[in-house]
Amino acid sequence: MTLPELLIKKREYLLGRWEDIILGEYAKDTFRIFKKQKDPFANPVGHKIRIGMAELYDLLCDESDTEVATPGLEDLLRVRAVQPIAASTAISFVFDLKTLVAEQCEKEGMDRLYKEFLAFCARVDAAALAMFDIFSNCRQTVYQIRMNEFKTGRHIITDSARCSSQIMKEDMADSIRNRTTNAQPNEER
């Protein structure tokens, strides 16, 4: 059996154990609910973790697949990006898969497949880097939405004008400013 064959054969088992590692970050009662409840609307975090991990698993198994940013994985990282956890913790679950796969290889007596295993690890590492980019983008979005809230006057106390035409003028001015800035980055001081 080759490693890719093993990964396909053990997909459900490995995914289940991998999922437990992330869900294990939560309290015991939470773990039980997030693990058991399969309705995506009654358990959005558990659902997004499940879908995101499955998509990541499949792309790690498929050597022809190089697109890490699948919708499900992006959603999973979007969940992680607003949890009060360190960035390293948010991403680290991907490395746990190496350990799980190594265990399986050993169990199946597949020690000879170290080259295949190294290739798999390299894919995990590459995915981790891509995931870090996705995670950073999510964090950027958090900063951006704070700014957007401020700009739209959704929360501020102000006595400046807020009306459709004013907003349209501001948007136009913003986009002109952005274009100018992008066109002449060197002139910025």
């Binding site: 970050e25 939560y26 309290a27 015991k28 949890q83 009060p84 956890i85 360190a86 960035a87 390293s88 913790t89 680290s92 490395f95 746990d96 190496k98 350990t99």
Partner: peptide, 22 residues
Amino acid sequence: KVEDLRAAVATEPNMFTGAIPR
């Protein structure tokens, strides 16, 4: 181990209360 390395760069994963409620 991965867990040890992780502990070196981040404190324990903390849920909203500041720590995983054990």
